[in-house]
Simulated assay, not measured.
Amino acid sequence: MSTKKENITETNLKVTHHIRVRFNETDALGIVWHGYYLHYFEDGREAFGRKHGISYLDTKTEGYVSPIVKSSCEHKLPLQYGDIATVETTYINTPAAKIIFRYKILNETGQTVCTGETIQVFVDDNNNLSLTVPPFFEAWKTKNNLL
């Protein structure tokens, strides 16, 4: 049995965003609780959307939402209260009707703390999953030479 491999490519569309670890994000060991790294990914997605004109609000204005259907997170080193980290968010191009982002979180010395990926799909105002790329997203991809 053969499976068809999806044609995805990493793009040069990236955003670098800085976060400061807050006290409430740490656990009893004094390190960032593992679940907060997904929050940092979201901070990166929001920064990406603002910079590249494809924010959650832009998507909602077009009659869609883009829920996450898959996320992964690989922890390498811990962050601690007060650390300033850099979240690098990269758009991964795919012909499918979804949005893929890859993340790398770096500590203040440039070491990789965490890597991950999220996949989002498009759902219209009637809660219907879009099986084709919505027109506004196709226009965004055209504008960014991604087709």
Rank of each mutant, 00 (worst) to 15 (best):
T118H: 03
F137R: 00
I54D: 08
I68P: 01
W140V: 03
F136M: 04
K143Q: 14
A97R: 04
S71T: 15
D43P: 02
W33G: 04
N126R: 13
G49E: 10
N126D: 12
K143E: 15
G82E: 15
T16F: 03
T132G: 01
E46C: 09
I54H: 06
G110S: 11
W140Q: 01
V21N: 04
H17V: 05
H18V: 10
T11V: 04
F23G: 03
I119L: 05
F122E: 00
R45W: 05
L57C: 02
L106S: 13
T109D: 11
T94N: 02
K14G: 02
N93W: 06
T112D: 00
E117K: 13
T118W: 02
K76D: 00
N128C: 07
A97W: 08
T16E: 09
H34N: 13
F136H: 03
L146Q: 08
N127H: 12
C73Q: 11
T89A: 01
A47R: 04
K143D: 11
F137S: 04
D124A: 06
S55L: 06
S71V: 12
R50D: 14
S130H: 08
I99A: 02
I8V: 15
F136C: 07
S55V: 08
M1D: 10
V121F: 07
A139N: 14
D43K: 09
L57V: 12
F101M: 08
V87Q: 00
C114K: 07
I84R: 02
L131H: 12
Y81C: 12
G53K: 09
Y36N: 15
M1T: 12
I100G: 01
Y36T: 01
P78C: 07
Y81E: 05
H18G: 02
E10F: 06
D83Q: 05
T26Q: 10
Q120R: 14
H75Y: 15
K76Q: 12
Q80M: 13
S55E: 12
S66L: 05
G63K: 08
P95R: 06
P95A: 04
Y37G: 03
G53H: 07
Q120T: 08
T11I: 03
N12F: 03
D124V: 09
N145F: 07
I119M: 12
T59G: 03
E108I: 07
A96V: 08
G116D: 03
S55C: 09
V32A: 09
P135N: 11
G63W: 08
S2G: 10
F136A: 06
Y81V: 09
Y64W: 05
A139H: 10
K70D: 14
N93G: 05
Q80W: 07
V113C: 02
T112L: 02
A139M: 05
D43W: 00
G82Q: 14
I8P: 01
I68C: 09
D83A: 07
S66A: 14
P134A: 06
F136V: 06
I92Q: 03
I105Q: 00
V21D: 01
P135M: 05
E46M: 12
G35E: 06
H34W: 11
E108P: 01
N7E: 14
K5L: 13
